[in-house]
Design a protein around this nucleic acid. Structure first.
Length: 493
DNA sequence: GAGTTTGAAACT
DNA sequence: CAGTTTCAAACTC
């Protein structure tokens, strides 16, 4: 079978034991339904907090354009507002200012992977379509409002391309400029406007192209999420903690209990990483691999933050050089039924793909023919379940033969090998071949032929089953006979 | 919580 | 591209 179990058609199996955690390296399954209020917690002392501490107020409205959009809104920082059935995220202008040193306008995109983009006046971003919401800074803010921020801000929701699988919202904050927005209804995908040489599709969030006007900083949207959650608990942001202007250092506030709360989008918040040697700039780091800044992590010597943006970008580029798909979701849609599957497949050897070491198992999807795993038990349990039963029967029989032979020859038992990838002696270079697809299919065809034959003969169900089982027994003996004869041949040499 | 196991990523 | 090393998460005790 060429290393692939024929039973690994991607679909429905999900072992009962898989109920626990969301994959950390893998984008969670897409949430359903409309946008909901995000409930991430905001950390104390992190970049987010810094960003949020400004009294200035910007409303981000993210979602499908609806009638009623386009009204002018005045909001308070940190508030979550429902307007016209939509959720409104309020982002303090200082969040941008913290990052860029300048008042910024904000653009929010889409309801999944959203970006906020701040561009120079005249740089314009903006896309077409969709309604526009004008947002004004709240006059009652207790801080002076920067001139640029005092201008009404137009915000349009806009769909973002790619990353549909991650369902994460991200914010792109350009270095300076005014506000442009585009709506979800046909907006133009946001791309870095500067000299980034990476393809936009490969650009992970958090990439800062440069600090020139018009450049764009992409900020993982969980910052925004965190903002929201923090403000959902405390309707107003604590302004007293405002850091000095210009401080944009996302200090990963350390140890926090693992967040187990699932937000309203159905997304389990990312687990904090614990990287110690990678500086969170390699794909070992889940945060980095997911294109996110570290936040609330327990990592040491972390460079995956805005203060090390240059290093971070280098690392991103290095990763993309090695693998242009490095930042694409590992779980994609595959097959005719469009079910989730691991794009690369796993390579598990010892876990049987039944532990979270296995990325497929972790993502709660059965292994597919993309996988090169050994001893895979993370197989589809659906239609082919009967076939699988037969296969397992055959495999168990083979395993017994192997064990007996191993005992006789005092060789290591093969019993640890995959039941679905039983090794058979052969003349191949490796010395073994697997019970391959051809054998399985041939066996199945034999069984089907016998079943058809019996069916046509109008025999009883019991007789039909007996016929099939007898045929299977014959096939099995043939397979085993083939194995043992070859094995003898090999063993003698 | 320390130590071990595991497999992906990185490296050679 | 295969083999090895490094790394961090998962797991075990």
């Amino acid at each position: 079978m060429g290393g692939v179990s024929p039973m690994k058609s991607p679909s429905k199996l999900i072992p009962v034991s898989m109920a626990t955690k969301s994959p950390t390296k893998i984008a969670p399954a897409p949430p359903t339904g409309q946008q909901q209020i995000i409930t991430h917690q905001i950390s104390s002392g992190g970049a987010v907090r810094n960003i949020l501490s400004s009294p200035q107020k910007i409303v981000i409205k993210s979602s499908v354009p609806q009638p009623g959009q386009g009204t002018v809104s005045t909001v308070r920082t940190g508030q979550i507002v429902t307007s016209g059935g939509q959720q409104v995220i309020k982002i303090p202008a200082s969040q941008v200012q913290q990052l860029t040193g300048q008042p910024q306008n904000v653009q929010v995109l889409s309801n999944k992977m959203n970006y906020v983009r701040l561009v120079n006046p005249g740089v314009g971003g903006g896309g077409g379509g969709g309604g526009t919401t004008l947002i004004r800074p709240t006059p009652s803010t207790n801080k002076p409002i920067a001139p640029a921020a005092s201008q009404p801000i137009k915000i349009k929701a806009m769909p973002i391309t790619h990353n549909q699988q991650t369902n994460k919202q991200r914010v792109i904050i350009p270095v300076s400029g005014s506000v442009t927005t585009s709506s979800m209804g046909g907006g133009v995908p946001i791309r870095p406007q500067t000299n980034l040489t990476l393809p936009a599709s490969a650009l992970p969030p958090g990439v800062l192209s440069n600090t020139q006007p018009g450049s764009v900083v992409m900020i993982p949207a969980h910052y925004m999420s965190q903002l929201q959650s923090s403000t959902s608990n405390n309707t107003t942001v604590q302004m007293s903690n405002q850091p000095p202007p210009g401080t944009i250092i996302p200090q990963p506030p350390k140890p926090q209990p693992p967040r187990t709360v699932i937000d309203a989008n159905g997304i389990r918040p990312r687990k904090p990483c614990n990287c110690t040697k990678s500086q969170c700039l390699k794909l070992y780091c889940d945060c980095f691999a997911n294109g996110e800044f570290c936040n609330n992590c327990n990592c040491a010597n972390c460079f995956n933050n805005l203060t090390h943006e240059e290093d971070r970008q280098k690392a991103i580029k290095a990763c993309l050089d090695r693998n242009p798909q490095a930042f694409r979701p590992k779980i994609g849609k595959g097959g005719s039924d469009n079910e989730r599957r691991h794009n690369k497949g796993c390579n598990c050897k010892r876990s049987g793909c039944l532990k979270n070491y296995c990325e497929c198992y972790e993502a709660k999807i059965p292994c597919s023919n993309m996988c090169k795993c050994v001893g895979c038990k993370n197989v589809d349990m659906n239609p082919a379940v009967e076939r699988k039963g037969l296969m397992q029967l055959a495999e168990c029989a083979e395993a017994r033969v192997n064990q007996q032979k191993a005992v006789k020859s005092k060789l290591p038992s093969f019993s640890h090998h995959s039941p679905t990838k039983m090794l058979l002696p052969t003349s191949s270079r490796s010395g073994y071949c697997r019970m391959n697809q051809e054998v399985v299919e041939a066996t199945c065809q034999c069984l089907l032929a016998q079943a058809d034959k019996a069916e046509n003969a109008l025999v009883s169900k019991a007789q039909l089953e007996h016929t099939v089982i007898a045929e299977f027994s014959r096939c099995l003996m043939q397979i085993i006979g083939s194995y043992t004869s070859r094995s003898r041949g090999l063993g003698d040499t």
